[in-house]
Design a protein around this nucleic acid. Structure first.
Lengths: 353, 353
DNA sequence: TGTGGTACTTGACACGTTTCAATAGGTAGA
DNA sequence: TCTACCTATTGAAACGTGTCAAGTACCACA
């Protein structure tokens, strides 16, 4: 019943599965290995009766094609590597989902790794994926420069940067216009009558924070002629709930008292909301609050949080699309697919007066 | 400069990377392929000067070992497959993180796939992973029976079930005691003085829902002698925010009016909270609310949501540990690692009176 | 019976690596 | 000088698959 290996039978633990090769199948079906291979890859050129016999043999032996041998012979690996900063961040998971849904339908399997902002881990992953001969890589690079990706470039591994711009001679990329997002949020506050706004921002070593700040300034300039607005920037050490909560004291101590708070991120905004609640400050009546990222729970808070949505899923799909083009299209040109953020206006910024 | 392939040079697009093999390296270093292999795998047995020469050649050619060839020759794949129901569910992402952190340090790369509850997709993933000769699989099976995993079993692929029990002769598994979790939550309500409790539960086709209900009943029986308590079960179609919100009308229509609501899941609880807020019902003063899962945002709501925490990260680590044992230890025995859920008491169930 | 053609099937080779028996070159002891 | 032994290196075989030139069997037709 169970297939035996040819040659001198090695001592075999009965619990151990003896790998079934195409040769074993051939033996069972009384054909050559070439015919088995044909049945598997070009079923049309083999006679009906033979084909059936081979298929039965495949079934009865439990044969499973060895991808490494297939690949070694010249086949494709049907594998794509995805390297993100942090899998547990919903933004990245959503992006992964998007890429997965697109690539899965093309028969690819995804390898996933989190770098946790470590250059070393990133290098390890990229290395491992190159060794596995992935057909492409989707990556959120850790470092500002792209030297860590030079290997991918010189070896011609199709690569798409996620949420990170690159010049056309380097890589394809999918991005969200963070400047625009910052502008949208700020403009919204100005338009709803707020003139004294606090911008709680994270460290400017993070590109997203820099860009969003730039957007805020742009909105200020745009509105400056029509009315007088004042934006004070408050810098915090990290984009976390705690940092947002801690910022509240500084916000309430400001004079003149601001009427709105814009946060570089939803977690900060959440912290701010909690801090304000603890101080008995009503939102949005006493103080309006706007976040950024539109994390899933934002819409479930009360008051629901106004936020800037980033189309993470679409980013993932687009990245997959770019990758597929680079893999298949010989005249592929690198390009950037830029997404527009969208302001989701909810109760936290709704001026009831 | 750029390495050429031996034999009749095929027409090579200059943009295309010519794969560098161990043979190319050997040629550059003026040694045999065997020596290159030795430098890579057992550096100690090759002379210092030769080793250096080979390493230089590896560097200058940009050689990257071909894993498929390595593997075909008998090496390990250093790959583990992870199949979950839904990557965007935080519970699974956390679990993935746990497994990743453990397996990464052992040099494994993870392949990830979401089945979205589709048997067919599950089969495809498992198939693909077997073809890739993963060393093991971590999986949340879709179906109640385990027939879809019989292939893994007969072929001896080390497999660990996630959040799903199996008998010892089948697979290893990591689980959370949902009965206990349900019991904890219900008991907490009884102990804080609630006698009229609504249990908003999802479809009992879901094992978790069945188990949690069983826990609730257990708590009722345990407390029955000491005092009289009444638990009414309210069944909803799915574990979503919307379903929770819709359940509120039915809750408020009940007579006698319950004093506490226990939800089978945090999303339901969130919906209930929103619905109650819309009706002007105060939490916890008019009605206490308890959830399940302890999703990250629960602690950030106001009132913060009391919930049952599942140690997802630890589950992932434990699963990885079981897998490693099965891969390495010849006397491995299947076992179940069961985790205890933990009740996180917060404001939503705190009786202020 | 021979010829040509069709419809399948075969078997050896290549892919890139590791392993291992064989060999070369050197050194020390007799 | 011969032998024995060690160290360092070599080269061929093997892993499981797909491809393709070559082969076989069969049939129809002259």
């Amino acid at each position: 019943m169970s297939p035996k290996r040819s040659g001198p039978t090695p001592k075999v633990d009965p619990k151990t599965w003896v790998p079934v090769t195409i040769r074993d199948v051939a033996k069972v079906a009384h054909v050559s290995t070439g015919t088995v291979s044909n049945v598997l890859n070009r079923p049309d050129i083999v006679a009906e009766s033979t084909r059936q016999r081979v298929l039965d043999a495949v079934e009865s032996t439990g044969f499973i094609r060895n991808t490494q041998a297939y690949q070694l012979r010249g086949g494709r690996s049907h594998t794509v590597g995805v390297v993100v900063l942090d899998v547990s961040n919903p933004f990245f998971t959503e992006m992964f989902r998007g890429a997965e849904s697109r690539l899965q339908s093309e028969g690819y399997v995804l390898m996933l790794g989190s770098t946790d902002d470590s250059i070393e881990r990133e290098a390890n992953f990229v290395r491992a994926m190159e060794e596995h001969r992935v057909e492409g890589v989707l990556i959120t690079p850790v470092a500002a420069d792209l030297v860590s990706l030079s290997g991918l470039k010189t070896r011609g591994v199709p690569t798409v940067l996620l949420d990170r711009k690159a010049t056309a001679d380097e890589f394809c990329s999918v991005t969200v216009d963070d400047v625009r997002g910052g502008e949208l949020a700020a403009r919204h506050l100005f338009e709803t009558g707020h003139a004294e706004v606090v911008f709680v921002n994270g460290p400017t070593t993070i590109r997203q924070c820099r860009d969003r700040r730039q957007g805020v300034r742009k909105a200020v300039r745009a509105v400056a002629k029509a009315k007088k607005v004042e934006v004070t920037e408050l810098s915090v050490g990290a984009l976390t709930v705690r940092n947002g909560e801690e910022a509240v004291d500084r916000i309430l101590a400001m004079s003149p008292r601001p009427t709105a708070v814009m946060c570089a991120n939803d977690l900060l905004a959440l912290g701010v909301l909690r801090g304000l609640a603890a101080h008995g400050v009503r939102v949005p009546d006493d103080l309006a609050v706007v976040g950024y990222d539109d994390l899933i729970f934002g819409s479930m808070l009360s008051p629901a949080l106004t936020s800037v949505r980033q189309p993470a899923l679409e980013l993932g799909v687009a990245a997959a699309e770019l990758l597929l083009d680079e893999v298949r299209n010989p005249d592929h040109r690198h390009r950037e697919v830029r997404f527009e953020p969208e302001l989701m206006v909810r109760a936290s910024s709704f001026k009831s007066s």
